[in-house]
Every structure is written in structure tokens, then in C-alpha cells.
Design a protein around this nucleic acid. Structure first.
Lengths: 342, 342
DNA sequence: CTGAAAGCGCTAACAG
DNA sequence: CTGTTAGCGCTTTCAG
């Protein structure tokens, strides 16, 4: 492994000058610079990040914690962030919690040891908070900037879609289509706002909220959303409750529900109607194509990065932590029959 | 940020002793150890990886390069590997190439700078090879162990499914079902073996290979597989070529193809039959559920890790680089009508 | 514009 | 068992 010393020797200069060329901020005579560049090229020299880190006390590494990568939403978010960060000279370390406890799966601990310059939190669930909040606090104590994609508390900037408003819109769309008996299938892991929006929409439209039509998993983490949606939809049909639409708190749940409905001989959208949330790639590809709410995931990712990098590169005492809420868009496709089924 | 010095001072010992306690290999008197542990606790001391790296010249970091994370196959692979590595005390850095050139998106360079202890390569395409192979060579020159999920050359251990054999099996299954006019939709990015297997199966069964039934993208990277499958299937139908089955080189292509077929009024599986490859989560959820080939992704991930860690922790001169090939399983579901459509 | 030299925090001899 | 010390490769004063 060649070091800065080897380059200096090769180019007949001091290591300081080589360092200057590498970092390109100090002035170096053109000839010298070119000589050094040739030496770097020749020796295939690559600067050692660890050594650099020690000096400048910045790792140019960002950590990100998500539950899974096999969920398209998190995968996309991670991918966009990784790519944007590399352009800014940062490296992203992605840690997946798999809904496990920190002691079984030391995500945050590792990130702390690696001295990340910033931390992006995908989501933290109620059940884990007690334990994880302790670690979050350590990041705060060490003045490591944080951003979260779900609201944790007012001391951490959060980025999210306008879940409350969008689910209201989605449900009102269902109501406008003439549906009154609208069920809800959701999970705590998709946040409470989507359920609240559903409730609000019903109330604002003078439709009584029927609690037996609300299948909402408040206690356990849902590991396989589609399966959860599948089961809930079956339960709903089997219970003989009357309903003509289902609002699902994410697309995977919606797809599972449609699968169950069709298996039971109920056509979507002619017999029952369903809407999802998130607009994953498969939403448009599924049959019927899913009517769903699209999160502006790219914009959200960029907002997170901007906030984080800003705090890292221009740290100020008492940075004001804000809530950044993005509007979302209802994507009308086939699963509600609002549009002709092709 | 507290350092080992602060801990030493707090505990009234030398930094060497603190180091011993942290690394736990040298003997330290119980009292002293406890005293130090208390100091560590009190100061919330976390060892600095960068400094440690400099000394021991190992980062306990592994790099992984994949094209995308929004493709479920890569996302799953990355997720499994990340989780397995953290259990072994390693951190994974995932870099997505997005099919871009190394100069536009410095994946490998970053990993080199970060001095990863090992590198996992998802896939490298023909078009990129010229440029990327230079970097791969740098890893080899620096004796950084490599493993790849696609065959690069004989100097790099590769892990893969038995694509040739499995696609033969899939196509022979189609033949056994009575289909003779079988089309192929594939892309170079899914490897050539799947197309070869298709050709072999036809030849072994005395079916003439009709090149006009083979839609195979040999030149460009396919960014959106499902869209590619959709377009190819439309072309196929519009061309008025006779065919009754399509073998697709991955599930996304298959789903796109089914979507196109159904849009054109052709039912799957009663009019046309299709089989995919990979068995993504959506395969079982799609309507019709996809008959496809399942990769033993978990086993493959573990094999990659084992090979890599072995080379890292017990380096030997001239480690024998092998090809590890896993059997795959044909998952018979609905899209070929081999089973009743529920 | 360039060089010399002081460390960053840690580990690993080596000496006690 | 414990302390002293020499760097790992780099950035950054400070002199020239």
C-alpha cells in the first residue's frame, strides 16, 4: 500500500506538498502539482481515510437506520440518499434493525463507534423506544446531527409526507365515488396519521366510524405487510360485515388485500374497491393497478440530506429542529374503478 | 469526545491498561479492570475506530457494490449480508452504481479509500468492465479479498445459482406442459446463462430455435425491467408471431409481460403462459401468481460471507478462487396453468 | 510556494 | 500485571 510518503519520494517533494495537491485548497505551482499528480497516478495512490479522519476529526460518514431493505420504500430512500451523499463526498452506512432489539443487533452502537458525522433515522417504534432512545441521546450528547423520517420528538428534525391530509383526501375520494362503508387496514409501523386521516374524513362527511371496520395492529410489528393485508381482508369478508371499500395504510397491505378478495371471488374494483399508500413500483404494475398515495420520496430524501449536511458543515449552537412536511399526491389508477379498467 | 486518555486519567491508570481492558486479550487485575470499566461507563467512552484502524491496519469494514437497491434481489442480498456481517463485528458499506461510470459515481474508489477489508461485487456489466476492471485489479493488487455474485474471471471467487441448469428445467417444464412455441425475453444484465439454458432445452427436445422469438437485449443496460418486459411482450403479440409461452429472464420482466398480455386481451395462463426467474416476494402475490425459479439467496449470501471472512481472517498465499454454484428450485404457481388458478 | 515537524487516538512491543 | 513509548498516514501550523 502506497502512502503519501511514497508519492512524495517519487515526486521529489515533501509530504506536505502532496497533501496540498490532494486537498486542492492551498496554492501549488503548476509544474509541481503535475509532477505530483503523475506520481499519484503511477503509484495508484489512494489517500487513507482513517488517517485523514484522525486529523480532521470528521469521518465524512453518515449512518442510516431502517427496519429492512427488502421493503421497497426503505430501499429506495436508502438508495437515493447513498447516491446523493457520495456526490457530496460522504459515505453512507446502512444498518437494518430488522425490528430487533439494539442488544441483539447493535445498529446504533456500531454507528456510534464509527463516529458517523450524522445519523438518519428511518423509523423507531414504540416498543423499541425505551432502549433506542438511550442511544439516540448519546448521539445528541455528542452533538451528532440527526434527521428522522418519522416524528420522534421536537428535538429532532423530522421529514415526512403529509399523511394526515393525504389519507383524508384518499378517503374523501372514496366517499365521492359513492362509498360509505369504508374499512381500514393499517399497522402502527405505518404511523398513526393515516388512520387518523381516515377517521377525520369519515367524521367530516358525517359517516359514523364503525370500529369493527378498522383493523389496526397497534401492538406488534408487522413483518410481512402483504400477508397482513391478506389476512385482514379475509377476516373482513368472513365476518360478514358490510363494506364496499378498503383504505390500506400501505401498498403491500393493499396488494395482499386484493389478492384475498379475488381469491374469495370478489372482483376489484367491481365488487370491492381498495386504495393503498406509498406508490411503490409494483402499484402501477399490479392487476388491477393500484390507486394510491404517492410520497415525494426523492424530495424527502434530498431534504433530509440538506438538513443534515447543513448541520454538519455549519454547526450552530441551538440549531432549530423543525418538522418538514411534504404534500403527497393521490394516484388514481384502476383499483377504485375511478378509471376504466383496461 | 472522550479519548482513552480521559479514561486513563479518570481511572488512574495508563492508557495501555485501558487498551488492554477494551480489547480484553491481555490479563488485567480484576480490580483494575472494574475501575476502568466504571470510568468508561461514566465517561460514555467509545473507542475511536479510525485510530484503531491506523494501528492494526484493518477496518473491519466490507464494501459491497450493486447496481440498485430498488431491485428486490439486490436489496435482499444486501440486507442479509449486512445483518450477518454485523454479527461478526464487521460493518458493510453498500455502494450503488446505478449503471453509471466509475468516474461519475465513484463507488469503487470510495471503497478503496475507506480501505475495506473485503469487497463483495454484485455484478459488473460488459460495458463497464474496461473501466471498472482497473479498479478491481487495484483491490487484487492490494490483496483485498473479493467475492462476486457473477462470474468475472477465474481469479475471483464467484457465487451464483445454477442458471444454465435451472432455465433448462424451466423451459423443459413448459415443453412438458405441451408448449412448443416458446419465446424468450431477457437482458444481458441477468446474465447469458439463462438464455443459453433456454436454447439448450429447445435443442435437446428437438425444437427448432426461432431467433425471432428471442428478444434479448445484448447492448444496453435495462433500467426498468418490468417496462422492458411489457414492451417486448407487446412487440411479440403485435408481430403476429405465433407463440404460446414466454420464458423471462427475471420476474420483473415476467410481470411486465403479463401486464401487456392481459392489456391486449390475452389471458395468462389460459391464452399464453409465462415463467419468470428469481422468485421475488411479488411473484407469489401477483395475479396470476408467477411460476418462477427460486434462488437460494440466503445460502448464497452466507457462502459469500464465509468465503470472504475466511480470506480476511486467515489469509494464505494463493488462495484457491472457486466457482460456487447453487441449485435453484422451480416454483410452480399459476402463471403456467400447471396448477389450478384459484 | 514549499518543507519540517507536531500531533490526532490507538495498539503493541518492550521494560519494569 | 502495568507503564512507557514508538509509530500508523495524514493535515496543518509555522518557518523559510
Amino acid at each position: 500500500m502506497n502512502t503519501i510518503k511514497d508519492v512524495a519520494k517519487e515526486a521529489n517533494v515533501s509530504i506536505a506538498t502532496v497533501s496540498r495537491v490532494i486537498n486542492g485548497k492551498d496554492k501549488v505551482k503548476k509544474e509541481t502539482r503535475e509532477k505530483i499528480q503523475r506520481a499519484i497516478e503511477k503509484l495508484n495512490y489512494v489517500p487513507d481515510q482513517a488517517a485523514r479522519t484522525m486529523k480532521i476529526n470528521r469521518t465524512r460518514t453518515i449512518g442510516m437506520v431502517v427496519p429492512l431493505l427488502s421493503n421497497e420504500y426503505w430501499a429506495k430512500l436508502a438508495e437515493i440518499i447513498q447516491r446523493a451523499l457520495i456526490k457530496k463526498g460522504y459515505t453512507l452506512i446502512i444498518s437494518t434493525t430488522n425490528y430487533e432489539r439494539e442488544s441483539d443487533n447493535p445498529c446504533l452502537t456500531t454507528l456510534l463507534e464509527r463516529k458517523v458525522d450524522g445519523l438518519i433515522i428511518g423509523t423507531l417504534f414504540k416498543g423499541e423506544e425505551a432502549e433506542k432512545e438511550k442511544y439516540i441521546q448519546m448521539f445528541i450528547d455528542q452533538r451528532i446531527p440527526l434527521v428522522s423520517f418519522s416524528h420522534i420528538n421536537n428535538n429532532i428534525t423530522s421529514i415526512s409526507g403529509d399523511n394526515l391530509r393525504s389519507s383524508m383526501e384518499a378517503v374523501e375520494y372514496l366517499i365521492r365515488l359513492g362509498h360509505q362503508k369504508i374499512a381500514f387496514i393499517g399497522s402502527i409501523s405505518t404511523g398513526m396519521d393515516r388512520e387518523l386521516g381516515y377517521r377525520n374524513a369519515l367524521m367530516l362527511n358525517d359517516i359514523a366510524v364503525d370500529e369493527t371496520l378498522i383493523l389496526s395492529d397497534k401492538h406488534e410489528h408487522v413483518y410481512f405487510f402483504s400477508q397482513y393485508g391478506y389476512q385482514c381482508a379475509k377476516e373482513l369478508v368472513l365476518s360478514n360485515k358490510e363494506f364496499d371499500a378498503i383504505f390500506c395504510s400501505n401498498d403491500l397491505i393493499a396488494i395482499g388485500a386484493i389478492k384475498a378478495l379475488e381469491e374469495m371471488g370478489l372482483d376489484v374494483p367491481s365488487d370491492k374497491v381498495v386504495v393503498g399508500f406509498d406508490d411503490i413500483d409494483m402499484a402501477g404494475l399490479y392487476r388491477p393497478a393500484l390507486t394510491t398515495v404517492k410520497q415525494p420520496i426523492e424530495e424527502m430524501a434530498n431534504a433530509a440530506i440538506d438538513v443534515l449536511i447543513e448541520q454538519i458543515e455549519n454547526p450552530v449552537e441551538n440549531y432549530v429542529q423543525k418538522k418538514i412536511i411534504f404534500p403527497m399526491q393521490l394516484m388514481i389508477r384502476e383499483s377504485c374503478g375511478g378509471q376504466k379498467k383496461t
